[in-house]
Amino acid sequence: MSSPARVSLTLIASFFALYFIWGSTYLVIRIGVESWPPMLMAGCRFLIAGAIMFGWMLWRGAPLPTAREWVCGGIIGILLLSCGNGGVTVAEHWGVASGVAALAIATVPLFTLLFGMLFGQRNTLLEWAGIGLGLVGIVLLNLGSNLQGSPAGAALILFAAAAWAFGSVWSRRLPLPAGPMASAVEMLVGGAALLLGSLSSGERMTELPTAAGWGALAYLVVFGSIIAFSAYMYLLDHVRPAAATSYAYVNPAVAVLLGVVFAGEHVGMAEAAAMAVIIGAVVLIGLPQWRGGKVAEAEPQST
């Protein structure tokens, strides 16, 4: 058994991975799409990470997924990774600031509650208040100059949030592989779908990626997709689920700060107000989980 000090350091490192590594992926995506076509980069990211995780799980003795698990895992991978993360990547390629993209993705818990109703979930008055407040935040976000300058990017980023939420809700009702093998399958299929999308849309590499472009891809594979995910799984085993999913409140602020400091992004008054409103809405939705220590119907996840 690990010593208390060792466990404490591991907990700190795991929370750091969730809060700052996942929060930083939005800026790293922006850096990456300056060298890579967006769907090609996202597809390579998830295929590589999925292959590493798949091989690691087989080495640890995990059984091969059944045909049904491959199909179900593939559907969820397309919704979460191809449509969700792929949509974020393309939107940033179209000019949506990384911090604003992260803030828009913070609406996932709102969409999650709405889609949960399709499966018979009943929302509390507090959750309905959070949904209403979140919708106000979305309106404020779209009044900002960033999304007004890219209407297609605004629509795509909200579609990405909705796709991630729907996939998260549906995933709880489908037979998926056990443990991290589910994520490996989702990444492999989602990554393959993104590469097909890249090919069919005519994406082309006109020149080799820069060192920053290669570094961005490596960071997203190793840190964004493997290390941060492992930290999340560790926290689910050692802290309350509501604490493990608290990154949904922190990632937008981290992404906005990094975008302003390192990428010269500008956050206007409308976007700043939207951040306060949306994070407040997500906190309202999360209050019942913190009080009861229960897992949400479908926890929001990062890119």
Rank of each mutant, 00 (worst) to 15 (best):
M53T: 10
M53P: 05
F54Q: 02
G55Y: 04
G55N: 04
M57S: 09
W59M: 11
R60H: 10
G61W: 13
G61A: 06
G61P: 13
P63Q: 09
P63K: 06
L64M: 14
T66M: 01
T66H: 03
A67K: 14
R68C: 05
E69C: 05
E69W: 08
W70P: 01
C72Y: 15
I75H: 08
G77N: 10
I78E: 13
I78H: 02
L79G: 00
L80E: 06
L81Q: 07
L81W: 07
S82W: 10
S82F: 07
C83W: 09
C83G: 02
C83R: 03
G86H: 02
G86M: 12
G86L: 12
G86A: 10
G87T: 11
V88F: 03
V90W: 12
A91Q: 11
A91R: 14
A91K: 12
E92W: 13
E92M: 15
H93I: 00
H93M: 00
H93V: 00
H93W: 12
H93C: 00
H93A: 14
H93L: 00
W94Q: 13
W94F: 12
G95E: 04
G95T: 14
A97C: 11
G99N: 11
G99T: 10
V100H: 00
V100I: 15
V100F: 02
L103K: 06
A104S: 15
T107R: 07
T107S: 15
P109A: 09
L110V: 13
L113K: 05
G116R: 08
G116V: 02
M117L: 15
M117K: 09
M117D: 06
F119P: 01
R122L: 15
R122G: 03
N123W: 01
T124C: 06
W128C: 00
W128G: 00
W128L: 07
G130W: 01
G134D: 04
G137K: 05
V139D: 07
L140M: 14
L140H: 07
G144C: 05
S145Q: 10
Q148S: 10
G149T: 08
G149K: 13
G149L: 13
S150E: 07
S150P: 01
P151V: 15
A152M: 11
G153D: 01
L156N: 02
L156H: 01
L156T: 13
L156G: 02
I157W: 06
I157C: 04
I157P: 09
L158V: 04
F159G: 05
A161M: 07
A162T: 04
A163F: 09
A163D: 10
A163I: 11
A163G: 04
W164K: 00
W164E: 11
F166G: 04
F166Y: 13
G167Y: 14
V169P: 01
V169R: 06
W170A: 10
S171P: 13
S171Y: 12
R172I: 00
R172D: 08
R172A: 07
R172H: 10
R173N: 13
P175I: 05
P175Y: 03
L176M: 08
L176W: 04
P177T: 03
A178P: 01
A178W: 03
P180H: 03
M181H: 05
A182Q: 09
A182P: 07
